[in-house]
């Protein structure tokens, strides 16, 4: 499969702050690629570099086999981009802005745009300034999709959209991917990403912590809850390739998020003297994201683990 986006060791330094620190990514054609990261992780910087608005401090980047720094115009012609807060001309009407943008694309742009606007049920004669936030987002999306781009880059695309439209939009992203188009989106909406993304990358402190197909990622990360007779009992070091992403203790219980965990490790932990129970739980994408970005698992997940341990412990 061809890589529609390739970055190699991208770094970006802003006034004493490293926004990106050696980002290397490969996005395949026909996929929905989700870039996850906290605020300030470097997502928008990466998108700016991909769309040719920003030169990186170092590293290389190619989009559709084009250099964004040199061929920004061609990339913008073939790609669609929606920023998190698109600033449209608010004095224009909905129809007018479509006509205006159509003068910069081919003749199919306007009919597609009008069709999209009709689907979203936005009156064409209404001024942009009189639209709600969600309606503006719909107009921005319609404008970015109307030229049927090979690559669609979306920065927080669904903020402001109501649940129904959000669902429709996400399904249309899946359809696009199915038709061979590529969607690159950055989002905080884990549930949405989980629903549509083929591949997920988590960016943390300017570094790509993980970049894997969603299913693989979810399969590879497990939350393990261990119960002890004595809280001072030490656990054995898990063999490679296991990687403990996070660990927390609550009295006689310990919770760990482990990547590449397998049944052999369960036995290893369970056989440890002083361990009264070991339970595993598959994590949601949000929990995986938090584990990768160094946040504590929620209290709720700990409680769930505790219950599981008690049940297991009871059965032993």
């Amino acid at each position: 499969m061809n890589h529609i986006i390739q970055t190699s060791d991208l770094t970006m330094r802003f006034r004493g702050c490293d926004a990106l620190r050696g980002v290397t990514l490969h996005v395949d054609e026909g996929t929905v690629f989700a870039l996850l990261g906290e605020n300030g992780a470097g997502k928008t910087t990466l998108i700016r570099i991909l769309t040719g608005f920003q030169m990186p401090t170092s590293g290389t980047c190619r989009i559709m086999n084009l250099d964004p720094a040199k061929d920004a115009l061609e990339i913008r012609r073939r790609a669609g981009y929606v920023s998190d807060a698109p600033a449209l001309y608010d004095w224009m009407g909905v129809g007018e802005i479509g006509w205006f943008a159509a003068t910069l694309y081919d003749q199919h742009f306007l009919p597609r745009y009008q069709e999209s606007i009709r689907r979203y049920e936005i009156p064409e004669d209404r001024k942009i300034r009189h639209l709600s936030k969600g309606q503006r987002a719909k107009v921005a999306l319609s404008l970015s999709l109307a030229h049927d781009p090979e690559l669609l880059i979306l920065d927080e695309p669904t903020s402001g959209l109501d649940p129904k439209v959000r669902r429709d939009f996400l399904e249309s992203m899946i359809d696009r991917a199915a038709s061979g188009r590529t969607v690159f989106l950055s989002s905080h909406q884990m549930a949405e990403v989980e629903r549509v993304a083929d591949v997920v990358a988590i960016l943390h402190d300017g570094i790509v912590r993980v970049c894997e197909p969603l299913d693989t990622l979810k399969d590879s990360v497990t939350e393990v809850a261990v119960s002890f007779e004595d809280p001072l009992v030490a656990l054995p070091t898990l063999p490679a390739p296991a990687e403990v992403l996070g660990e927390q203790s609550y009295g006689r219980q310990r919770s760990m998020v482990i990547r590449h965990y397998d049944s052999g490790m369960h036995d290893l932990l369970a056989s440890r003297v002083g361990v009264t129970g070991v339970s595993e739980r598959a994590l949601s994408l949000e929990e995986i994201f938090i584990a990768f970005t160094g946040k504590s698992p929620s209290r709720e997940s700990i409680d769930r683990a505790e219950v599981a341990v008690e049940i297991e412990g009871g059965g032993v």
Partner: peptide
Amino acid sequence: SPASAEKESKDANRFSPYAVFGPSFGTS
């Protein structure tokens, strides 16, 4: 034109319509 990396890293007050951080971010 694309904002150059050198300029971004040196000049805190330069305008960029795509600036990620506010003018006060990270400046000593």
